[in-house]
Simulated scan of single mutants.
Amino acid sequence: MQVPVEKSKATRKTSVFVVDDSLVYRNLLRNMFTQDEEIEFLGAAIDGKFALPKIAQLRPDFVILDVEMPQMNGIQTLEEIKAQFPETQVIMLSSRTQEGAKITMKALDMGAIDFVPKPDGTQEGALSETLDSLTSKIKSIRSQKSDSKPLPDKKPIAYLPFRNRQDKEFSLCAIGISTGGPIALRELFLRLPSDLNGSIVIAQHMPPLFTNYLAESLSQAANMRVKEAEDGEDLKKGVAYIAPGGKQLEIIPGPEGPRTRVFQGPEEELCKPSVNILFKSLADNFAKETVAIIMTGMGEDGYLGLKELKKKGSYLIAQNRESCTVFGMPNRPVQEGLIDEVLDVERIADKIAYILQKVDLHG
């Protein structure tokens, strides 16, 4: 008698369950997932009340969860999923409204791994982009989870002078981050002290509205002020600035030192905000004062900027594979040897504190 061969984890499809009160979106997601050879569509429900029994029975890898629903909304449903089925990953479907953005940030604080904003209207191009983004996130997060190994026990850090930079002081920390970013940033800022003698600037891939609420959420949780960057601000020590969603952020020289430039272009740049644009502006103007950190995210945004920073003497850090939601953005810089240190989020926070507590801002 031939014994059935068990499918390997590598060939097992990623299972998905959808919770959304919109029949249009339930059908769109059903059609998309059932046509994907790597994804198993388990079903859909109109809201959390109907979804939870099915989730308990089916145990999906991912739940795609709408924010606004009757009877049992996305936040209430997320709370129950994280309490009862902690292994299930949740991606939120958010409306592009102030209330939608605010609720989504709360959902990320509660354990949702990421979100996808619903497009305005039902334009075919916008819908296609949203659906493609959702599918890419599911596959990238699942692949990362399958590849990751448990983090080793941490040993005490003995910080040494920077490689060939013993006499150098740093006053700027630049962070590039995407998928899984809000969770990683929250962990990072919870560990940072309030007395940093330097500024932090962040490019987090997010649409308009969402970055403002991300900044508010981080500022409420952290020991330091976190704000959405405005055009023409002089950077202040102990403050973190997040690039506005849908726009670009550069750091340029001003009369008092480093200053923000917030602008719309260039049109050909797909990421808004772009890590490359932020990093390249620092390479052009403040390379030797900058520590740049590339963290969790899909794609390669930040790679070109890191190459410029490396040429001009910046110190470069990457988040390690094991602690990333998706080890996409750090991967190529690490593989090509651009990075000076590869650390988990906790040690990145410790290193920022070590670096920026040692100096007085801008001389």
Rank of each mutant, 00 (worst) to 15 (best):
V116K: 05
P117E: 00
P119G: 07
D120F: 01
G121N: 11
T122D: 07
E124F: 10
G125W: 02
G125T: 13
G125M: 11
A126D: 14
A126H: 07
L127Y: 04
L127D: 02
E129K: 10
E129M: 07
L131I: 15
D132S: 04
S136N: 14
S136K: 15
K137I: 14
I138W: 05
I138N: 01
K139D: 00
S140H: 11
S140F: 08
I141T: 04
R142H: 15
S143P: 01
Q144M: 12
Q144T: 03
Q144P: 04
K145D: 06
S146D: 13
S146M: 13
S146A: 13
S146C: 01
S146K: 10
P150Q: 04
L151S: 13
D153I: 09
D153Y: 03
K154L: 14
K154P: 03
K155P: 01
P156V: 02
I157P: 01
F162A: 09
R163L: 10
R163D: 07
N164G: 11
N164R: 05
N164A: 15
R165G: 04
Q166F: 11
Q166I: 09
K168W: 03
K168L: 09
E169Q: 14
E169I: 07
F170E: 09
F170I: 13
S171Q: 10
C173S: 12
C173N: 10
C173V: 14
A174D: 05
I177F: 14
I177E: 07
I177S: 10
I177H: 12
T179E: 13
G180E: 12
G180W: 12
P182G: 14
P182I: 11
P182F: 09
I183K: 15
I183Y: 08
A184D: 04
A184I: 11
L185K: 07
R186Q: 15
R186C: 06
F189G: 08
L190A: 08
R191V: 00
R191C: 07
R191S: 14
L192P: 02
P193V: 09
S194I: 00
S194K: 15
S194G: 13
L196R: 05
L196G: 01
N197K: 13
G198S: 08
I200G: 06
I200M: 12
A203R: 04
Q204Y: 09
Q204S: 10
H205K: 10
H205P: 09
P208F: 06
P208V: 02
L209C: 01
T211N: 07
T211S: 14
Y213H: 15
Y213E: 15
A215T: 01
A215V: 10
S217H: 03
S219I: 05
Q220F: 03
Q220H: 07
A222E: 04
M224F: 02
M224V: 05
M224G: 00
E228L: 06
E228M: 14
E228K: 08
D231M: 03
G232F: 02
G232T: 04
E233T: 01
D234N: 15
D234R: 01
L235S: 10
K237M: 11
G238D: 12
V239P: 03
V239L: 05
A240T: 04
Y241L: 05
I242W: 09
P244W: 04
G246N: 08
K247T: 06
K247L: 13
K247M: 13
K247Q: 15
Q248G: 02
I252D: 00
G254H: 02
G254E: 02
P255Q: 12
P255W: 02
E256Y: 00
G257N: 10
G257T: 09
